[in-house]
């Protein structure tokens, strides 16, 4: 059925809201980069392939970070790609460090900034012991809100800091709002005072923020639900709850529910098919336990899709390029 408001929008607004020009412009850049393709297949075919790949969400693979974060659709597509590529990590129960997750991210986006991965890891680890191991799903859901709502979370961090230091963020960010009502806030930072900020005050600030934020925000009703449940909370406490909230995940729409994270029969089938093509594959591959994973985790690894690919040299040679990219960024 129709959503009629788009018919009444001014042209430019309609195009901007759906990022039509972003993609058209990118299509032209891609075309200029791949001129030899168009002499072979024709321009219409090139554009058809481009826009189809945008629809399918595969257009962000191996693209530069500035493009990956350019639109909400690109961000959701990247999250989906990351999940689909590396969900076997979660399936095997492997725990990785922040740096290792960053390597995975860079396999899909070579210039992915370390800062974002760090911020996501802080959500999981509550800003503590940053070299700890994290499970795939914990990292994925934290990374999801950090990456998708990046600008929103930056503003939230600023608000939180202001509240913590006793400033009223509303007076800083929106000079017109009256601030008298916030004065009775208890003094913070003293011994015996619980950490964090008062939830209801925090919510008022976030409500205000969502109103005027031009980037994506999580649904306000869900934020309210989270903040209504507590008296006080810390910044990372808030982000942790946000990342684990199934409603927020659904509203964002990039990933399945946590319970279904490891389910992807179509992908499994395809991997099985690929594995069947690799000659001389020994099913009972003995994987060297890495990362100090307890041996009890080994059984599910046998027959896991990527593990056997680890060994035949034939497959290895193809991935050299990506490994080198990762190496450079690591050192």
């Amino acid at each position: 059925m129709l959503s009629p408001e788009r018919l009444a929008q001014p042209d430019y607004e309609y195009l901007a809201q759906r990022h039509v020009l972003t993609y058209m412009e990118d299509a032209v850049y891609q075309l200029l980069e791949n001129r030899e393709d168009i002499s072979q297949y024709g321009i219409a075919r090139f554009f058809m392939d481009y826009f189809n790949s945008v629809c399918q969400g595969t257009h962000i693979l191996f693209r530069e970070f500035s493009f990956i974060q350019a639109t909400p659709h690109n961000r959701a597509s990247f999250l989906r790609a990351f999940w689909r590529c590396f969900r076997t990590v979660g399936k095997n129960g492997d725990l990785l460090t922040m740096r290792e997750y960053h390597c995975l991210l860079q396999l899909l986006c070579p210039d992915f900034p370390l800062e974002l991965t760090q911020k996501a890891a802080r959500i999981v680890l509550m800003d503590d012991a940053m070299d700890c191991l994290m499970s795939f799903s914990d990292f994925l859901f934290a990374f999801q809100i950090q990456f998708y709502y990046s600008e929103f979370l930056d503003s939230v961090a600023a608000i939180y800091q202001d509240l913590l230091s006793g400033k009223n963020p509303n007076t800083v960010i929106v000079p017109t709002s009256s601030s008298g009502q916030y004065r009775q806030r208890p003094a913070l930072g003293e011994a015996g005072v619980p950490e964090g900020v008062e939830a209801s005050l925090f919510y008022q600030c976030l409500e205000n923020l969502c109103d005027r934020h031009k980037y994506s925000c999580p649904p306000l009703a869900l934020v309210k639900e989270i903040l209504n449940g507590v008296q006080r909370l810390t910044f990372y406490g808030f982000l942790g709850t946000l990342s684990k909230h199934p409603g927020i995940n659904q509203a964002l729409g990039a990933l399945p529910d946590k319970a279904d994270l490891m389910q992807d029969p179509a992908m499994d089938e395809e991997l099985e098919r690929l594995l069947a093509q690799v000659p001389g594959l020994v099913p009972a591959v003995t994987a060297t336990p890495e990362l100090g994973c307890p041996p009890s985790r080994t059984p599910p690894r046998v027959g896991s899709p990527w593990r056997p690919l680890h060994h035949p040299r034939k497959v290895d040679t193809e991935s050299d390029g990506s490994t080198e990219e990762t190496d450079e960024s690591e050192t």
């Binding site: 393709d37 392939d49 790949s53 191996f62 899909l108 990527w306 990506s322 490994t323």
Partner: peptide, 24 residues
């Protein structure tokens, strides 16, 4: 050691996505 992911990415690259994305 833990970078089997490179191979995963190779698999991902070769998936017949039916798009020119891989060539980008």
């Amino acid at each position: 050691a833990p970078l089997p992911s490179a191979k995963m990415a190779a698999v991902e690259k070769r998936r017949p996505v039916g798009t020119p994305a891989a060539s980008f």
